[in-house]
Design a protein around this nucleic acid. Structure first.
Length: 1049
RNA sequence: GCGCCCGUAGCUCAGUUGGUUAGAGUGCAUGCUUGACAUGCAUGAGGUCGGAGGUUCGAGUCCUCCCGGGCGCACCA
């Protein structure tokens, strides 16, 4: 689903309206603006959902939700009411960024810093004595905003600043209004090194001063707070000097300076660059101002009915107790650190787009007037038609909190203001305004017709503010499933329950036994959809909203549901552009995934993105524009990103090949309709595209060679070396992929699959079985030393071919299952085709009695007789079981033998390349090797011909290097390729000499290590042994190279 | 300022608890036209692992400082 992104969305629509029509929201009114935003939202939601569908997100689209839809609205209203009733929601003051031009509060994201040329004035206040008469002592301070002097309520110094310690507790006089204010000490506000070391305190209009005020609340040196400004930026009557009242703050600034100078309390002024916050919308300076806001209490709290709630702590505990785990784990500290501050959550926003705060209020001149109103509406009869309030409690309520051992950990005392209860679904709170007036705040839960109108009829008005978007987003995991309703549409049907249960093993993350959803479905109580899907397995998100979103989901989940919303939180990397900046709409450096999908394919984009998703690094994605004519890629520059349409003309990009200019895709605006557009692409996706192409072709090759396929069991003795090797590798790789996915290491998982598919399955296995698939007699080597023992043992060519087909299908089948989450489109297509050709195929399955993968030691046992038993395949890849390959198939010894074969073939190809021997020309190969290795080499003689066009002439310990041959050495083994006439003696000598030098260097390193006594004494014996072994190997290799050099010389 | 992360081949990135001769993709070079795939195949060149110290028998990996980059949170009288 989607959220309504309050600030960003309203800002975009308002800005467009202003740019295109010159209208502000006040011109068209609340309802009209909200209507416009809905229209805008509908268009963008369609686009976003379209992007998700294009990329193949397999969601239950019937359950799509939007944070402002009816289902979510109900959950929001219900939660707000519950919190209000519990006393968790309260009204308080908070400093906001005030735009005096538009007369609106502005969010931090809508504020930008700009340096302006300003002044830095220094003044002094006179210290007064006990009789409040001026003394000769002064305290000097500096400011960039002299007018705020009229709202000063203290002067602050550092507690250890010896220049001032004797003054702390005394008072100074603000000369322009005669107010006496205290000198206080605060280590966080005053800095001994800065300016005079003393600072004026204006809590009403400065965030730091406000923080100081908040710190001192309730303490002996508590200070006052004065709201100096009116909403339009003029000075209010609170300044206590009629000369300034009603004048703009900037005019007052000059007056104050002049007046201070006139009375001799001005000291100096200097020019200074001042960073000043400006409103992004009006481009005018921001004034910090206090305003009424709604908050949710995060710390320890006692409810009127005697429960203790600690929202922040409960969410901290959930992570500390591992009920919620972060992947990578380091992000847990971001979460815990932030929650530990237990700062109350300001949930009100001065916007029109969002959930309106469900509070209606009525103001009374006095407490007695309010009391009279309430008394007039008290009734104990539930049938009363008018306002039957029921008084429930007044006073204080106290609790003692114990830990599990019964020790007292905290004493809690809460003030319960006068509370009145009205029928079902309303809760009333009295609130005293700073003016002395009283306000009755009525929170109305949803669900009772006409009740809002009733209150409005009695002079109550609804709060104009809306809730922070995160308030509704915080409820997402349970709100979207219908909470608090008992029923949810669409309901969970039995079939769906069964599916949910069946698919459970795929949810590797939970590591828990599948719950029996079917049993729940048969019960009648509760919301079955919610019961089935809550808590979820995993939340996947970006690190910048760990606090804003993840923490809030956990705490509301615990508060509303009594359980965490998800078990795991996977924090993925962010996509950066080619210049290392986070992609964002405002920077104009984002990419539309649909452009990428059109260019590279959805599977390619998915596979690439998954392969970029590592644990530590963000993803740098350099972008190019693709020429719409010739497809030349033009790298994106910062200039392209920043360009905006001017005078109706859209920016263009120049194709160096076509020498033409084209408009290009931008997240900030749309190109003109009908013109050719250079779309955004990124070469990094070729990684995924090439892989998908490779995999597709490999599968196609397999299917082309399935003619005559019949399902049948494959027994261990029918398997050839390459079959056993690929099955061993498949088992290992599947196990690795499982491990990576359990830790959300998508990069490692895709890398493992890619390497297996390309470098093992395609490059070696498919190449090696080609002769068998051709069903021709195996090309036997001609040398008399060669016997094809394997071929002899494996029976007829028909059987060889059938075995190859069956093993090939088994591996391909597993690969499709492994790749399905990454490349679902290709996999589904292949699955359906395979179903046509081979509906029954061997699925490598857990053999009974064989230990499962977790106990991985099985690989050290004598390789188990692996057999493949045919089974009918599932209907579709997307619901096919995740592959479970027996660990007993892993055979390390066999893999080592196979690696030797690979090295030999690569060495032969290397010789071919160096001497530019045409691929068609066969070469002869002689191998000097131990009897064991020679036997191995001979058993696969035909593969030398198949893979390197080399005919094995001889293999054995007695083999000598023929005159005029190229040679290579692999440890103890050496290979010779006779090249009479072809060989360039000098070139070969140079090549071998270079090789010998390299070996000597490595030998020196290893020998040095071993001659170091502290190494042999301190390093673990196995490490020492390994170095010795390597050294011996290197020496033998060098010997064989030196022999070649002697022969050549 | 505090915290987290990063700096490895021209580019984009891997590199398990410190332990063989530091890897991949892409780009580059050379050679491959017939049957899965040129979005491909084969072979090769290319790195004093940001810098300086330290711990250790041994450091790309651990510690300290410095330089450069990203992000979050503060702060800017």
């Amino acid at each position: 689903g989607t959220d309504h992104a309050g600030i960003a969305t309203q800002a975009v629509v308002e800005r467009r309206m202003l740019e295109e029509e010159g209208l502000t929201r006040h011109d068209i009114g609340r309802d009209a603006l909200v209507k416009r935003i809905w229209k805008w939202k509908d268009a963008y939601e369609e686009r976003i959902v379209g992007q998700l569908k294009s990329i193949g997100a397999s969601c239950d689209w019937r359950r799509i939700r939007f944070t402002l839809d009816d289902v979510c609205a109900k959950a929001v209203r219900h939660t707000f009411f519950k919190m209000f009733k519990d006393g968790l929601i309260y009204r308080g003051k908070r400093l906001v960024n005030w735009d005096t031009f538009l007369q609106t509060a502005v969010a931090d994201d809508e504020v930008f810093d700009e340096e302006i040329d300003g002044h830095f004035w220094t003044f002094h206040y006179k210290v007064v004595d006990d009789q409040e008469n001026d003394t000769n002592e002064v305290i000097r301070f500096s400011t960039t905003r002299p007018e705020t002097m009229l709202g000063d309520t203290a002067v602050c110094v550092h507690p250890t600043d010896e220049r001032y310690t004797h003054l702390v507790g005394k008072k100074v006089r603000i000369p322009l209004n005669g107010r006496l204010i205290p000198i206080v000490a605060d280590k966080d506000l005053a800095d001994k090194e800065l300016g005079t070391g003393a600072v004026k305190v204006t809590p009403g209009h400065d965030p730091n001063d406000y923080a100081c005020y908040a710190r001192k609340l309730g303490k002996a040196d508590q200070i006052e707070i004065i709201d100096l400004l009116n909403l339009d930026g003029t000075v209010s009557s609170a300044c206590d000097n009629s000369k300034y009242v009603g004048k703009d703050r900037l005019i007052v600034r000059d007056l104050v300076v002049a007046d201070m100078e006139a009375i001799g309390q001005f000291e100096k002024v200097e020019d200074r660059k001042i960073p000043l916050k400006h409103s992004d919308r009006s481009k005018t300076p921001i004034e910090p101002m206090r305003s009424d806001q709604w908050f949710v209490k995060m710390g320890l709290h006692a409810t009127p009915d005697g429960r203790v709630i600690e929202l922040a702590q409960s969410a901290i505990d959930a992570v500390k107790n591992n009920r919620v785990r972060f992947y990578p784990s380091r992000y847990a500290s971001t979460y815990i650190d932030w929650l530990s501050e237990k700062r109350d959550w300001c949930i009100s926003r001065q916007l029109w787009w969002g959930h309106r705060i469900p509070i209606w209020s009525k103001t009374f001149e006095s407490g007695s007037a309010m009391e009279a109103f309430v008394q007039g509406h008290i009734s104990h009869s539930a049938d009363s038609v008018d306002f039957p309030f029921s008084k429930i409690s007044v006073g204080k309520v106290g609790f003692t909190q114990h830990d599990s051992k019964g020790n007292i950990v905290k004493q809690v005392e809460s003030e319960i203001p006068s509370k009145y209860y009205f029928g079902e679904g309303t809760w009333v709170q009295a609130y005293q305004l700073p003016t002395g007036e009283y306000s009755l705040l009525v929170c109305i839960a949803s669900g009772r017709e006409g009740i809002e109108a009733e209150f409005e009829g009695k002079g109550f008005t609804q709060d104009p503010d809306v809730l922070d978007t995160w308030f509704s987003s915080a409820l997402w995991p349970h709100a979207t499933l219908g909470w608090p309703d008992e029923e949810h549409d669409p309901p969970l049907d039995a079939e769906e329950c069964a599916k949910q249960t069946a698919s459970e093993p795929r949810a590797l993350a939970t590591g828990q036994a599948p719950t029996s959803a079917v049993a729940d479905a048969s019960g009648s109580d509760g919301n079955r959809v919610l019961d089935t899907f809550y808590p979820g397995s995993v939340l996947i998100t970006s690190r910048d909203i760990i606090t804003l979103w993840v923490a809030r989901m956990v705490l509301t989940g615990l508060y509303n549901m009594g359980d965490v919303p998800f078990r795991h939180v996977h924090v993925h990397p962010k996509i950066l552009d080619g210049f290392g900046q986070t992609m964002s709409k405002s920077k104009g450096n984002g990419v539309d995934p649909v452009d990428l999908i059109e260019k590279y394919g959805a599977d390619a984009v998915r596979f690439s993105i998954a392969s970029f998703a590592g644990e530590t690094q963000d993803v740098r994605l350099p972008i190019s524009y693709e020429c719409p004519k010739c497809e030349t890629l033009i790298p994106q520059t910062l200039k392209h990103q920043k360009a905006k349409p001017e005078d109706g003309k859209k920016p263009t990009v120049r194709c160096p090949k076509c020498k033409a200019d084209y408009q290009y895709t931008s997240p900030a605006y749309d190109p003109d309709p009908g013109v050719p557009v250079a779309r955004m692409v990124s070469e990094r996706f070729e990684y995924g595209r090439n892989f998908c192409n490779k995999f597709w072709n490999a599968a196609r090759f397999a299917m082309l060679n399935l003619e005559g396929y019949t399902p049948g069991e494959v027994t261990a003795d029918q398997l050839q070396l390459e079959d056993r090797w690929i099955l061993s590798r498949l088992s290992t790789v599947t196990q690795q992929v499982d491990q990576y996915l359990l830790r959300y290491q998508f990069d490692a998982a895709t890398r493992a699959i890619r390497e297996f598919t390309w470098n093992e399955f395609c490059d070696w296995y498919l190449e090696m079985i080609k002769p068998r698939l051709r069903s021709e007699p195996r090309a036997l080597a001609t040398g008399q030393a060669t016997t094809n023992a394997v071929a002899d043992a494996s029976g007829s060519d028909d059987e060889t071919r059938a075995t190859a087909q069956r093993v090939l299908l088994a591996v391909l089948d597993s690969l499709v299952r492994l790749l399905q989450p990454f490349t679902p489109f290709i996999c589904e297509e292949l699955w359906q085709r395979l179903k046509e050709i081979a509906p029954t195929r061997a699925l490598p399955a857990e053999e009974s009695g064989v230990k499962n993968q977790e106990s991985g030691k099985a690989r050290n046992h004598e390789p188990q007789a692996s057999s493949l038993k045919p089974q009918a395949s599932e209907e579709a890849a997307i619901i096919a079981a995740w592959p479970r390959i027996p660990a007993s198939w892993q055979d390390e010894a066999l893999e080592r033998r196979f690696a030797r074969l690979q090295e030999t073939i690569i060495a032969v190809r290397n010789v071919r390349a160096i001497y530019s021997i045409p691929p068609g020309t066969p070469v002869k190969l002689l191998m000097r090797a131990s009897a064991e290795v020679a036997g191995d080499i001979q058993s696969v003689a035909s593969q030398f011909d198949n893979l390197a066009k080399a005919v094995l002439e001889a293999a054995g310990a007695e083999v000598e290097r023929p005159i005029g041959s190229a040679s290579f050495s692999l440890g103890e083994t050496a290979g010779y390729i006779p090249l009479e006439g072809l060989i360039d003696r000098a070139a070969e000598l140079e090549r071998q000499t270079k090789e010998a030098e390299k070996l000597r260097k490595h030998i020196a390193g290893h020998a040095g290590k071993l001659s170091n006594e502290s190494f042999t004494a301190k390093a673990p014996p196995e490490v020492v042994a390994q170095v010795q072994e390597t050294l011996d190997g290197l020496k033998r290799q060098l010997e064989s190279v030196e022999a070649v050099i002697r022969d050549l010389g």
